[in-house]
Design a protein around this nucleic acid. Structure first.
Length: 689
DNA sequence: CCGGCATGTCATAAT
DNA sequence: AGATTATGACATGCC
């Protein structure tokens, strides 16, 4: 077990270093305590790379000996590690619909990150900039304070204030790419094209400017407000201001929709439901709003009259009693309508905290790191596009190496390499086993010389065994390569020691003819290892193969059968030691290579997963922004159509719509809304800690 | 001739 | 305690 621990620890360290190099945070303890099952082995079977193939080990296994603990396949670890990372990464990107709904309910009206803060703003703050102005924020979220990623959030939002802060230009560029893809819902991946990007730079700038203006329009009055709204947050198109209420036009312009019923036109929410254009004051409080925003149903005009004591000063007494079900959630901060007069500057400028902020904080936090990763790893838009293509037709887990011909380390390549490695090892081991069983044959399969070698009994061990393995390991097609083909390869037979060469290599003086047989003998001599020559010189009566591969009991038994000199015994022990060490070295090197290849493949897998997750995150952000815009527009619609008893619209600076947990909406004074918002703000903050 | 590569060998530690 | 294995370092030979 200690060896296993060592392996895991070392592998863990390697992998940790590797991951740290690419910027992935590693929670080492997670693995060490997780004891994950060997998934990879279950799927692919044990890799031969770390499997001992010594013949005596096979016997030992049959005899009850276990395989050495160090033969544990590191693949298990790396696979487990990868899966773990993947799972960990995935849970950060989940933005379930229920959470979105929860956000709508539990939004924090305050604690926003004001625009005056260097790292202010949230990505998904709406493009229309209809957020409440709370001034410099004194409730910056912890994660924001810690990570300072809000710049990216803003950039990923539909309208982003100017980006500044810690991010590098590359960061911003990459984010822009993703954001542009995000923005351009219908656009393909041409947004990744640099040339295309160049053209979009202007649009991007325009959008940014628009967003900036939108965020500051609160101080510019209604005229400036209307002008700014003409820049569509999604498309960047401009529209002339239409004959209409500011609120209505704002929302419609925001969605690039012609004048009309924005509900049916844009949202398909409560379609065919007419909206009373002259909502009277007693209808200001709307009840029965379910989560599908059915506040626009005709029922709103027939709301039951009930007590609304807390709202009495500002809400008509005949308004709904639904406030009893209201939470303190306040929509006003979120979707405060555009200011209709200049007196509202104090409340309609900087954005309130995005209720999704808490959700996005974490996600964007990862976004930053992933962005950095992408940059560090040389991801360029083209590559990103390729990755996207991959993921379009791929879950990201089944790897298609066609996109990256240079990477054999995709699952296909790695599996084939593994299988080849495995098969080669098994083939070699079985072949060697037969050698061991049948006696001295040697790795040379030259049939013309086998008898000679057998007669001389000095050829057993296969010096090219590992080379054969390695060839097949690198290329499965070479599995058909027979050992004798190694004759054309390197000849690593060392120079003979003079003492050994004396008797072994000198041709018999009686041999007059230098025929083919002698040449063959010379050839074989060259093929023999040093130890084989030594064994022959010392007249060792059995093969090196047996010396090396016999279990220790049989080996001792064999030695006992012969009367061997001390020199012979010493040589035999050395031959055995060197032979075993040679195989050990081969295994060690193969294992090392396998580890490297596995690491390489894992890195590529992680890169693919990272790109996929990044893309998924962008999609999540996109959908979140869309939802937010919808809600915002609905807010504007509702608020803009409310009228007091005199038929005048409510001032956004004085009233706000509050959204309750049960879906109902209530018109309350801003002061009350702010108070409730402050109360509500403290809860999630405490929860975060 | 030199450097890279593959392989063998040794020393040593670990098992 | 001895055998076996793993591995870094070095040697050797080939290209």
């Amino acid at each position: 077990m200690l060896s296993l621990k060592k392996y895991l620890t070392e592998g863990l360290l390697q992998f940790t270093i590797l991951l740290s190099l690419i910027g992935v945070r590693v929670d080492v303890d997670t693995y060490l305590t997780s004891q994950l099952p060997p998934l990879r082995e279950i799927i692919l079977g044990p890799s031969s790379a770390y499997t001992q193939t010594q013949f005596h080990n096979l016997r030992n296994t049959l005899d009850g000996y276990g395989i050495h603990p160090k033969s544990i396949d590191l693949d298990n670890y790396f696979t487990a590690r990868r899966l773990l990372s993947q799972v960990r990464a995935l849970d950060r990107f989940q933005v379930p619909t229920t959470e979105v709904n929860a956000w709508l309910v539990h939004r924090d009206p305050e604690g926003s990150v004001s625009g005056s803060q260097p790292s202010s703003g949230l990505a998904l703050e709406s493009s229309s900039g209809l957020q409440d102005v709370t001034g410099p924020d004194n409730g910056v979220r912890e994660s924001e304070t810690e990570q300072g990623f809000s710049e990216d959030l803003e950039d990923l939002g539909a309208v982003a204030p100017p980006v500044s802060g810690d991010l590098t230009k590359e960061d911003i560029d990459l984010i822009d790419i993703l954001w542009r893809q995000d923005i351009d819902l219908g656009a393909g991946r041409e947004v990744f094209d640099y040339s295309h990007r160049q053209k979009e730079q202007d649009v991007d700038k325009e959008l940014r400017d628009g967003g900036e203006q939108a965020n500051t329009w609160a101080g510019e009055g209604a005229e400036a407000l209307a002008r700014d709204l003409l820049v569509d947050g999604e498309t960047g198109e401009s529209f002339p201001a239409q004959a209409m209420e500011v609120n209505t036009s704002a929302s419609e312009i925001l969605y690039n929709a012609p004048p009309g019923d924005p509900l049916s036109t844009n949202y398909s929410l409560a379609p065919n439901t007419p909206i009373n254009q002259n909502v009277s004051l007693h209808q200001a409080s709307l009840g029965g709003c379910s989560q599908d925003f059915s506040l626009f149903s005709p029922e709103v005009e027939n709301l039951p009259v009930a007590n609304s004591s807390t709202l009495l000063p500002l809400v008509p007494s005949n308004s709904t009693s639904l406030n009893s079900t209201f939470s303190s959630t306040n929509l006003a901060g979120l979707f405060f309508p555009p200011q209709l007069n200049g007196t509202a500057n104090d409340t309609a400028g900087p954005e309130l905290p995005d209720p999704l902020g808490g959700l996005l904080d974490e996600a964007m936090l990862d976004e930053i790191s992933l962005m950095d990763l992408a940059i560090e790893e040389g991801f360029n838009p083209v590559q990103a596009s390729q990755l996207e293509e991959e993921f379009d037709s791929d879950s990201g887990l089944s790897l298609d190496s066609s996109h990256s011909p240079s990477s054999l380390s995709s699952s296909e390549g790695s599996s084939s390499s593994s299988s080849s490695s495995s098969s080669s090892s098994s083939a070699s081991s079985s072949a060697s086993s037969s050698f061991s069983e049948e006696g001295a044959v040697g790795y040379s399969s030259d049939s013309e010389t086998v008898d000679l070698e057998e007669a001389e009994g000095a050829v057993g061990y296969q010096p090219e065994y590992s080379k054969f393995c390695r060839m097949s390991y690198q290329d499965p097609s070479q599995l058909s390569c027979l050992p004798y083909l190694e004759h054309v390869g390197h000849n690593h037979t060392y120079n003979m020691a003079p003492s050994a060469l004396d008797s072994a290599d000198l041709p018999p003086p009686s041999t007059l003819k230098k025929g083919s047989k002698e040449k063959q003998a010379d050839f074989l001599d060259k093929q023999m290892s040093r130890d084989e020559h030594r064994a022959r010189a010392m007249k060792i009566p059995f093969t090196n193969d047996k010396i090396i591969n016999l279990p220790v009991e049989e080996f001792n038994e064999l030695l006992s059968k012969y009367q061997l000199s001390e020199a012979q015994l010493s040589l035999i022990r050395d031959i055995r030691r060197r032979g075993k060490n040679k195989m050990a070295a081969q295994n060690c090197r193969k294992r090392k290579l396998d580890t490297i290849l596995n690491l390489e493949r894992d890195v590529e897998d992680l890169q693919r997963d990272k790109a996929r997750l990044l893309r998924e995150k962008v999609e999540f952000l996109r959908s979140l922004r869309q939802m937010k815009q919808k809600v915002q527009s609905l807010y504007q619609e509702v608020f803009g159509r409310l009228r007091d008893e005199n038929g005048r619209p409510y001032s956004p600076s004085q009233y706000a719509l509050q959204y309750a947990g049960d879906g109902s909406v209530l018109l309350i004074p801003r002061t009350m809304a702010d108070q409730q918002a402050r109360r509500q703000e403290r809860k999630p903050k405490d929860r975060r800690k």
